[in-house]
Nucleic acid binder design. Structure first.
Length: 544
DNA sequence: TGGCTTCCTG
DNA sequence: CAGGAAGCCA
């Protein structure tokens, strides 16, 4: 469908171009007030102009010499060969070239379709006599005090007609929909009575345009109101995954991501959702969706009351292993260590967005509505939906990998594939995951060495006095790195492994093994044997 | 030789 | 966290 149909301007325009739509599209595109107001629309199939009927069926205009007026013909097809003055408010279906009677018949048919009143309209080709008779009948319905008015229909100026139309629009814009339509058409009939026949036709056409615009506008509104898929969850996903990253292509220098680096994360993410055509940035619908507040409940803290009590006990134990005096000194040591050992990390690198194959949560609806730009926008909003297949790793995957580290420091490729089966595994994806765990280990061992040296400096004489509890500084540092949100219950086994690692480092440093450049390898050998199985939850269907 | 790991750097 | 170099190992 022509995008202009959905632009702001459509609400005040009668131009309803449905080119590109199929009959199926239109059959579902029913105005919300179809009972009160039937709207015809035109689309094209194999070069043939098709028209819809109020009941949803459609037929070819080739076969129809008269009948429903094509809305876009109303607006775009104009031919003044009939000798009518051009009227910017009036565009008749001159293409059919059936003469004034046929034109009048079509107008009358529109009235029939919109009012549903058989008494108001002639079927098929109507003669002037028919319509004169109809007008006589209509006059009988007029209030008595109006009957005396001159019914010769002295021609009014077009300015007067416009004014009449404006008055109609103004006066009947806030009343009940159905009675409003009925009343409107009564007024139109009344107004038209005082005008010459050509002017009456023009007035009718003007009002028809107005009604058509109203109907389409209401239909669009109702359609948008009935689209739940672009609500909160999707917006939340957008915000969550704005900082998606995928360095996988860089690994192999493949252009698969098709991403040009831009400084702004959001810009990156949005630019990669799809190569969009020029989409109206002022699209009200998109704007509203983006502005919707996120109200996704944060995952509950999994720490139970029991575990909190246990932590309290552990906390006391840990305070014993790290003397209070050392607590204050540790900060100075930490600063010194960081300046000497820990390399400054530049983490401001903009994360990269993955290339994602997305399928809209409800593609059928969007396709049916012929809203290509809405579909594109919604694609950007539903990245985490059911049909997604990641070609890149997201921040959710990173978070999951960090949590996995609590169980396994040296995951095999098989384990990685089992835990990240929502990712299309390639060599570069595997490399990136392995690299992640390598980085995790690096941080882990750096922390271990730092705390081991600190303990040694503090005069801890026995490695058995070193313990790692949930309240220890070491654990806090690790937890901050791997479980920043602190919404994951770190397994007890990890604390045990961390304690073993700390003691290994302490022993190695205290024995002077660190003079050997490869002194850490022996520790690595020990630690790599302490991996646990990753829980089944990590291998379940959904990441995160 | 390819896969994996650590170390170093940004 | 990523990139790259270097080393180890089957």
């Amino acid at each position: 469908m022509n995008q202009s149909v959905w632009s702001e301007g459509m609400y005040s325009s009668s131009s309803v171009c449905l080119d590109g739509c199929t009959a199926e599209h239109l059959s579902s595109f029913q105005p919300s007030h179809s009972k009160a107001l039937s709207v015809s629309a035109t689309f094209h199939r194999d070069g043939e102009s098709m028209k819809t009927l109020p009941d949803g069926s459609y037929y070819s205009t080739r076969d129809a010499a008269s009948g429903l007026i094509c809305s876009n013909q109303l607006s775009s097809s104009r031919d003044d060969t009939a000798g009518h003055l051009p009227n910017p408010y009036l565009h008749q279906d001159w293409n059919l070239n059936s003469g004034r009677q046929a034109k009048r018949a079509r107008v009358e048919n529109i009235i029939k379709g919109m009012t549903g009143s058989p008494g108001l309209c002639c079927s098929g080709v109507t003669t002037d006599q028919d319509c004169v008779q109809e007008e006589e009948e209509t006059i009988e319905e007029l209030p008595l005090n109006l009957k005396h008015l001159d019914r010769s229909g002295s021609s009014q100026s077009r300015a007067t007609r416009k004014q009449n139309l404006r008055q109609l629009r103004t006066r009947f814009s806030h009343t009940d929909e159905r009675s409003e339509i009925t009343d409107r058409w009564k007024k139109v009939k009344l107004m038209s009575y005082f005008q010459s026949k050509p002017d009456r036709i023009k007035l009718m056409a003007d009002v028809l345009k107005d009604e058509l615009s109203r109907a389409v506008s209401r239909s669009v509104d109702s359609i948008f109101k009935s689209m739940p898929l672009l609500q909160t969850n999707d917006v939340e996903n957008v915000e969550t995954d704005m900082d998606l990253q995928s360095s996988t292509c860089r690994d192999n220098k493949l252009p698969c991501c098709g991403a040009t680096e831009v400084p702004d994360v959001q810009t990156e993410a949005l630019s990669l959702v799809l190569q969009k055509p020029n989409v109206e940035p002022s699209n009200k619908f998109v704007l509203q969706s983006r502005l919707k507040p996120r109200h996704c409940p944060k995952s509950p803290n999994t720490f139970s009351h029991d575990s909190a009590q246990r932590e309290d006990r552990v906390s006391e134990k840990n305070h014993k292993c790290l003397p209070e005096v050392a607590q204050s000194k540790f900060e100075a040591f930490d600063a010194h260590w960081n300046s000497v050992k820990v390399r400054s990390k530049v983490n401001s690198r903009s994360v990269r967005s993955p290339q994602i194959h997305t399928v809209s949560a409800d593609p059928m609806l969007l396709e049916t509505l012929c809203l290509p730009h809405v579909k594109i926008e919604s694609d950007s909003l539903v990245k985490n939906n059911l049909y997604m297949l990641n070609e890149g790793l997201t921040t959710n995957h990173l978070k999951k990998a960090k949590l996995m580290f609590f169980y396994t420091r040296y995951p095999s490729s098989l384990v990685l594939k089992m835990c990240f089966h929502d990712v299309q595994f390639t060599r570069c994806i595997t490399s990136q995951l392995i690299k992640w765990f390598s980085n995790f280990r690096e941080f882990y061992y750096i922390q271990m060495e730092k705390f081991a040296r600190h303990a040694l400096m503090e005069g801890v004489a026995d490695a058995r006095r070193l313990a790692v509890g949930r309240e220890s500084e070491l654990f806090r540092a690790l937890n901050m790195h791997y479980n920043k949100a602190n919404d994951f219950q770190v397994p007890e086994r990890f604390l045990e492994v961390a304690e073993i690692t700390l003691r290994e480092f302490y022993i190695a440093v205290s024995m002077g093994k660190d003079r050997d450049p490869s002194w850490k390898k022996a520790i690595y050998k020990v630690i790599c044997k302490l991996d646990s199985d990753v829980p089944a939850e990590f291998k379940s269907q959904h990441t995160g």
